[in-house]
């Protein structure tokens, strides 16, 4: 549904959470995607995966609950929910690469119209490279959704025709959730599902991607 105002990060997270089908196995990437967990309802019965070796991850641990042996992929202490399971790294990434996870939600520097994702490196020459599970996460789940701001601080669109940043995965992103619009990506191109604080005309003017509407 279109709104007059741009969405806050929590509103984007709520939208993503509402779109996750009941009973799904989901991996939430580090950063903005972790906010999605706060908006999942018990009725949805979503099982969270953390790639360092756990299904059934609960909320962040506080005080006495903190346990150095129980952390998430961001190395933050977390809790376990009833029915949780632990496994080693090869099994964890087999779970991902093997297409057993339903949805993976990731942050991004850029996404292309073809669903190519850039989120692991800015390509800055002096940066120390680090990739972690980004490339596995990008291509592993049945669906990869991105949460990001649509524009850089300078107002340049991060949803692009061709990536300028180093590739994380090719043709892997099927949805992009931003403060200004939600995009659905598919073989027939990109459709705008909703706009927020911007109309379609301005969106088309500022985003260098052919945009169809959901009805088209």
């Amino acid at each position: 549904m279109n709104t007059e105002a741009p969405l806050s990060k929590q509103q984007i997270a709520a939208l993503v959470a509402a779109d996750i089908e009941a009973g799904s196995f989901v991996n939430l990437g580090i950063g903005q995607p972790t906010l999605v967990a706060d908006h999942l309802t018990p009725e949805q019965d979503v099982t969270l995966h953390t790639e360092n070796g756990m299904l059934g991850m609960g909320p962040a641990a506080h005080g006495d609950e903190t346990d150095a042996d129980l952390i998430n992929a961001g190395k933050i202490p977390v809790t376990e929910l009833p029915g949780a399971a632990y496994f080693h790294h090869a099994d964890s990434f087999a779970m991902m690469r093997g297409g057993h996870l339903d949805v993976c939600v990731l942050g991004a520097f850029q996404v292309s119209a073809a669903g190519d994702l850039a989120n692991w490196s800015t390509g800055a020459p002096d940066a120390i490279p680090a990739v972690g599970g980004a490339m596995d996460l990008a291509i592993g789940a049945k669906q990869t959704w991105v949460m990001m701001s649509l524009f850089t601080r300078d107002g340049v669109a991060k949803f692009v025709d061709t990536l300028e940043y180093p590739v994380t995965g090719l043709g892997c992103v099927t949805r992009v959730y931003t403060e200004s619009a939600v995009f659905l990506l598919g073989p027939d191109g990109v459709r705008v599902r909703s706009t927020h604080g911007i109309d379609l005309e301005e969106l088309r003017a500022r985003v260098p991607v052919a945009l169809a509407t959901i009805e088209a």
């Binding site: 790639e51 990434f93 972690g132 592993g140 995965g169």
Partner: peptide, 30 residues
Amino acid sequence: LVPQGNLAERIRAAGAGIGAFFTPTGYGTQ
């Protein structure tokens, strides 16, 4: 630098007597 899942699978492969394997992770990347 190795993608995390490739790192895990390369280790697993060595222990399982597998010389190499084809993985989709990292295809088309640096």
